[in-house]
């Protein structure tokens, strides 16, 4: 498996670590249900999924990778800092 890091180019999977679904962190004051959904519940699609990978053994970038969980094809990779996942935080 290879992931195309926007900064480093295509690199082997073993340079990356995985965090899971890319979700927007709730506001501090959000209801417990929102936090439960953020930490525990997962849509877990069989198909394209936006997820977070960390180029730990490379440039250290957190990436948002859109990948098909059925055939593993990578549809898009962007730097996570260019997304708005911290909107709530």
């Amino acid at each position: 498996m290879r992931i195309h890091c926007p900064l480093c180019g295509a690199r082997d999977r073993r340079e990356f670590s995985y965090k899971g679904a890319a979700l927007v962190r709730p506001l501090a004051a959000a209801e417990p249900e929102a936090w439960h959904a953020y930490v525990n519940l997962r849509e877990n699609p069989a198909g394209p999924l936006a997820e977070l990978w960390y180029h730990e053994m490379g440039c250290g970038s957190w990436l948002q990778v859109t990948r098909d969980t059925v055939n593993h094809s990578v549809l898009e990779v962007v730097l996570a800092r260019d997304t708005a996942l911290g909107a709530g935080a």
Binding site: L52, Y54, G60, W62, L79, A80, R81, L85, G86
Partner: peptide
Amino acid sequence: MAHLEFITQVLHP
């Protein structure tokens, strides 16, 4: 380290 990078890149760029 990964956790701090996560916060600074993903949650608070």
